[in-house]
Design a protein around this nucleic acid. Sequence first.
DNA 1: ATCGGGGTTATAGTCGCTATAGAGTCAAGC
DNA 2: GCTTGACTCTATAGCGACTATAACCCCGAT
Lengths: 143, 143
Amino acid sequence: MNHACATPPEPYTIGQLARLTGVKAVTIRYYEKADLLPAATRTASGYRLYSSVERDRLRFIRRCRHLGLGLDDIRALLRLSDEREAPCHQVDAIIHQQREHVRDRIRDLQALEQELDRLERACRAETIGECKIIESLSRPTER
Amino acid sequence: MNHACATPPEPYTIGQLARLTGVKAVTIRYYEKADLLPAATRTASGYRLYSSVERDRLRFIRRCRHLGLGLDDIRALLRLSDEREAPCHQVDAIIHQQREHVRDRIRDLQALEQELDRLERACRAETIGECKIIESLSRPTER
DNA sequence: ATCGGGGTTATAGTCGCTATAGAGTCAAGC
DNA sequence: GCTTGACTCTATAGCGACTATAACCCCGAT
């Protein structure tokens, strides 16, 4: 029982870490250069080596990215997450702001969808000369 | 009556065209380099000059951008819009595809919004050490 | 003559990667 | 020991649709 089932032992190479976290090796290196991950320790020949600490940090980053957060926000969250005693309103603020951002974007896209709907239904023509879509896009001024 | 009310006479300088269309001068030059606009005619001293033809073309581009279309699609639409006799199903296809694209994006963002909602409501703590948001983002694995 | 507000070019930066080139490393099989 | 193939390293360029900057030129009004 409890055989480790394809999870490699620490330390991890970059490729193993990539497989463990679902973040590509190139992206991991990119995160290092972008100061989201600390400079990795290296083998004598220069290969990066990682421990479960970096693995967890990377998973944290990946979850934040999945929420649509930018790297700046993620850097802030990582920094904050180390200050266990600090008040967490800055954390709340980042998430709240992102929520508002997403909601705004949804509203914009819904308006867009309607407009595209209207446009798509408008065209019952055969040729471009009669096409209501092109006509609509070419309309003299309207605003 | 019928005084021209701040609409300058043709030909337009790039700045006048920018004001007429709501597209910044730098962007107009960018569109020229990107082959969305033909190379403008020039004054003796090298200033670009535009007519109502380019003004309308630029408005067309702006409307397409407002619909979220990429410059490649817009190039295609511009090319198509000159072929008055051609069938317009390619036009339809571009709009349709964009609609699907937008709908997919909305779905993604709505899922995101829910997740952010949950996260935001989860945090009733005072300090980061107790913060459910950070905790949730740091969770061991979950997938 | 000078000033402000235009215009011109070329180049680099934005964001979050992704792709490419060219080289070095490592374990396994022969 | 040698080769093979998978892996890793660095550095650089590209994506899309602009935006910003620098350094210069032009034009009309004072």
